[in-house]
């Protein structure tokens, strides 16, 4: 019998290791590069930023406060994409949650109760998405486009009588805590909304790395047949993930409505685009299986820094163009990386 040779392990080559390293950590370099770049620019022209250096404490706090909604959503959105599914209704879920939260607050419901009820509503909205996808077997893109329209309609109807959003009016006054959640610093000068996003992200990182759900999400997105053959109830996995995305979209809605001090049904418009942008920047594969919660969190920071930092360089109306270009660029580079992967 011939001598037994060891298998070659594919990624021991230097090139392989470098590409592996880049894939894991490139996103941090991108963030640092953007921050360094912005630190070198002149911020004097714009109100949003303190004069002088970008790295000035108040600038950082400003960016993180504004970013709270996408930061809280990015992780859950990633897990859903990892399982091979998508939710285009997150913006409408956000808007509807913002309205519900503001209505509760303005009618005297205390903070914790309003917070809990709104989050629960988010879970229900997410479950509804799961129902359309899993039970009615409607393609995820179409199912969540349906609910995008549905949730938005409900949110708009809730604030009907002649106003565009729920805010202090006449006898009804927003309680003082309403604004504090998204704006007033509680720790390191950062508001509660930001810390909730951090807690949610840590929870999701743990879920992704240590729980059945995290592992099964990857299996469902990576090889659905193998997952089913291993006895995994993939429908249940998808269902739970939609519910989590719903909850996180509700938290995003709470954060934004608190930041803006009003319950605006349209406050989440375009959030699905931002979320897709963020997870793609974070290296999540559109086809499922691949993606890390933490990288999407950093991806969200990058997108928000670009969006806000851009204001120092060009007028605001350049935003859509730049983000669209970033989206195409991210999609192309993800594609390029994964194709190299398959070729090796």
């Amino acid at each position: 019998m011939s001598k037994l040779t060891r298998f070659e392990v594919a990624s021991t080559t230097l090139g392989g290791q470098v590409s592996q390293f880049l894939r894991n950590y490139y996103i941090y370099f991108v963030l640092i590069a953007i921050v360094v770049f912005l630190s070198l620019t002149n911020l004097d022209r714009y109100e949003l930023f303190e004069r002088g250096n970008f790295l000035y404490e108040r600038n950082i706090i400003n960016i993180l406060r504004v970013s709270a909604p996408i930061l809280v959503l990015a992780g859950a959105f990633t897990l859903l994409m990892v399982s091979g599914y998508i939710d285009l209704s997150v913006g409408s879920t956000m808007g509807l949650s913002a309205v519900i939260y503001a209505m509760l607050a303005i009618n005297g419901v205390p903070f914790l109760a309003a917070f809990a009820i709104t989050t629960l509503c988010g879970v229900l909205l997410g479950t509804f998405n799961g129902l359309l996808v899993v039970r009615f077997k409607i393609t995820p893109v179409i199912a969540t486009l349906i609910t995008l329209s549905l949730f938005k309609g409900i949110a708009l109807l809730l604030v009907m009588d002649g106003v565009s959003a729920i805010k202090s009016m006449g006898d009804l006054k927003m309680p003082s805590w309403f604004n504090a959640y998204g704006r007033e610093g509680v720790l390191l000068g950062l508001p509660m909304a930001f810390w909730v996003a951090v807690i949610v992200t840590i929870t999701l990182v743990v879920l992704q790395n240590r729980s059945l759900l995290g592992k099964y999400a990857a299996a469902t997105g990576g090889n659905p047949t193998a997952a089913k053959l291993s006895g995994i109830n993939t429908s249940k996995v998808v269902f739970v993930l939609y519910a989590i995305v719903g909850a996180c979209a509700a938290l995003a809605g709470i954060a934004r409505s608190s930041f803006m001090s009003l319950g605006d049904p349209l406050s989440g418009d375009g959030m699905e685009l931002t979320a897709i942008l963020v997870v793609l920047i974070g290296g999540t594969a559109f086809s499922g299986g691949e993606g890390r919660v933490l990288r999407s969190f950093v991806g969200a920071l990058i997108i928000m820094t670009i969006t806000l930092g851009m204001l120092t360089l060009v007028p605001a109306y350049y935003q859509t163009l730049v983000l669209g270009a970033v989206l195409l660029g991210a999609a192309a580079s993800n594609h390029w990386i994964s194709r190299k992967d398959h070729a090796s």
């Binding site: 729980s211 059945l212 592992k215 990857a218 299996a219 997105g221 990576g222 090889n223 047949t225 193998a226 997952a227 053959l229 291993s230 006895g231 995994i232 299986g289 691949e290």
Partner: peptide
């Protein structure tokens, strides 16, 4: 093949049999 490329070898080996 019915393996999940995106998971580690160990994760594949225990897939569906995990203790939790």
């Amino acid at each position: 093949l019915h393996v999940v490329d995106e998971l580690s070898v160990l994760e594949n080996l225990t897939l569906g049999m995990e203790q939790s």
